[in-house]
């Protein structure tokens, strides 16, 4: 498989997952803003933006303009509708579609059409008119369709592995961000159910823990559950599995692939440290997961997608 195509599939996986998770996260956070009387909108929104890696710029030096205050609108814009903000859902859909366009001969026609129609619907501006909740539901619907079509139409070759690899790395990263965003709010534990709902995990969680709702258990579930597909540990393990299959040379000792090594180490750290220890430093731990994901993504790119650098031909006749 061509390196360039592998890269495109990897990024389709990442972008689609990012769009979905951002929609999930925004949906629940904006709901909390409305429901929870103890939350300060400005702080919460600023937190959210910084967790998602799109913090507001500091006030312009000197000219005395007041620092822009984060509110619902800014959050919706920067993480939802603004095609120029790299963390927004719309930008993610655009990114996924652009990569699918580049890998047009590999991506199945159905999958391409879903991504393309989603992308074509975005700039119509119709989404700003409906409630954000409808928009998020639509995004979840589209991304699920893409995932489902990929699942039922792609052959399980290297291309599939790269797609799932991208998706898993992104999922680990986004779940970590979700946990940070909720943990950073502090306050009553009643926010954890919303977080679980954002991951679509509430019912599973209730069944697993028999209705004992507790902050520790919720965090444990989202971090460490080996069976729930959106937990950090499951996503990391899935990514490791893809990398191992791509490697496909039975190694006797250790792990050769850098990305796999990084992901495995972080997963082991999470799994084998006492839970209380992890919870005590939750934001730091989550940041470490994010750093690992980003480093693993770079390592995959270096190893498999190395056609990137453009050659310049210095003609002898010049």
């Amino acid at each position: 498989m061509l390196s360039r195509i592998a890269e495109a599939l990897f990024w389709i996986g990442r972008y689609v997952e990012r769009a979905e998770d951002t929609a999930r996260l925004l949906d629940v956070q904006l709901q909390l803003l409305v429901e929870d009387p103890w939350i300060d909108e400005g702080t919460a929104c600023a937190n959210l933006l910084s967790v998602m890696g799109a913090p507001l710029e500091d006030a312009q030096d000197g000219d005395g303009a007041p620092a822009p205050r984060a509110d619902r609108r800014t959050v919706l814009d920067r993480l939802g509708y603004d095609p120029y903000s790299s963390a927004s859902i719309v930008a993610s859909i655009g990114g996924a579609r652009e990569n699918a366009r580049r890998a047009r001969e590999t991506v199945s026609t159905e999958m391409w059409e879903v991504l393309n129609t989603a992308y074509n619907t975005v700039p119509t501006g119709r989404w700003r008119a409906v409630s954000p909740h409808t928009f998020f539901a639509w995004v979840r619907d589209r991304t699920s369709t893409v995932t489902g079509i990929a699942d039922s139409t792609m052959s399980r070759d290297d291309g599939w592995l790269f797609l799932v690899l991208g998706r898993s790395i992104e999922r680990a990263d986004m779940t970590a961000r979700l946990i940070t965003s909720t943990a950073s709010l502090g306050g009553p534990a009643s926010r954890w159910p919303s977080l679980l709902r954002a991951c679509g995990a509430h019912e599973t969680f209730l069944r697993t823990y028999r209705g004992l709702e507790d902050e520790t258990e919720a965090a444990e579930f989202l971090l460490l559950d080996r069976l729930f597909p959106r937990s950090v540990v499951h996503a990391l393990a899935q990514a490791e599995k893809c990398l191992a299959e791509l490697e496909s040379s039975g190694q006797r000792a250790g792990v050769f692939d850098e990305a796999q090594r990084r992901l495995g180490r972080t997963r082991a750290e999470l799994e084998y440290r006492p839970l209380a220890d992890v919870l005590a430093h939750l934001p730091d731990e989550m940041e470490r997961v994010q750093r690992t994901c980003s480093a693993a993504s770079d390592a995959v790119a270096r190893r498999y997608f190395s056609s990137g650098e453009a050659l310049t031909w210095m003609g002898g006749r010049a």
Binding site: M1, L2, S3, R4, I5, A6, R104, E105, T106, T109, D158, F162, L246, Y304, S306, S307, A310, L311
Partner: peptide, 25 residues
């Protein structure tokens, strides 16, 4: 797509020793 073959760009190709090669994973 309909021939079931790779679509390559110039940067996917490299010539070595009078042969044409493509960069794959």
């Amino acid at each position: 797509r309909s021939m079931g073959i790779e679509l390559v760009e110039g940067r996917d190709l490299v010539c070595r020793g009078g042969r044409l090669l493509m960069r794959t994973t």
